[in-house]
Amino acid sequence: MKELLQQVINGLSLGSIYALIALGYTMVYGIINLINFAHGDIYMVGAYVGFAVTTSLHLGFFPSLVISMVVCSILGVIIEKVAYKPIRGSSRIAALITAISVSLFLEYGMMYFVKAETRTFPNVLGKNSLKLLDGSVVIDYKNIYIVAITIILMVALQYIIRRTKAGKAMRAVSLDREAAQLMGVNVDRTISYTFAIGSALAGAAGVLVGVYYTTINPLMGIVPGLKAFIAAVIGGIGVIPGAVFGGLFLGMIETMVSAYGGSLYKDAVAFAILILVLLLRPSGLLGRNIKEKV
């Protein structure tokens, strides 16, 4: 029982990291239907920015979080302008290959400058933990930070999308780009906003993961990027609460599979669930079913 409780906590903290990355993924996909493979790498850049800020400028956790978010959102906009805008009219597959090339560029460009070795993130949040039930259940304070920041960012995002003008424009563009343009929405600017926000979220996730797991390296974005994407699909891609739900769901599944003896096949189970979800509810667990247009 205690063990189960501990596993639930483990699952929640792992899941909230997936959720945080998945939020950005889902936004970008929702608006331009592009599997932005570079998203995981923006998250990696965010972690390195946070690392640089905390080690050489000796700033605390929150300033580094904010700086990293700003840098990443600028990076996101640049990537969109330089790489994705020119191929907006091309086929889906050309767009995907472009996203992969951006991803490789970020990974190996970063590796060229910082080398492949793992860096250790300074511990800027202290290492207190909450011990429940005679120490048999442990909650790290960093877990609480991560879950709280994920929820705050999700709520903020929902607010931006539901209540602000820019958010309304985003929804309009994702629904029908041409119609939105005819109604006077500046599509280019809206897409830039989306990338800025999505990338800022990735930057935040990068710093949080850096602080939580302490290690960062230039290829750290690949696996979480993929997992976050799965999470976004499970939750229903393009749906904000879906990304958070999908992240938590995936984190919990992985944890429970490991907990009950399947650690060898943990990732296989994650992918199997993904495929099941796709087959049974292609629009995701929280997504709306969209009728095919003829």
Binding site: E3, S13, E254, A259, G261
Partner: peptide
């Protein structure tokens, strides 16, 4: 990066 599930097990 996350080994807590197997470690708890």
């Amino acid at each position: 990066t996350d080994f807590k599930a197997v470690l708890t097990k």
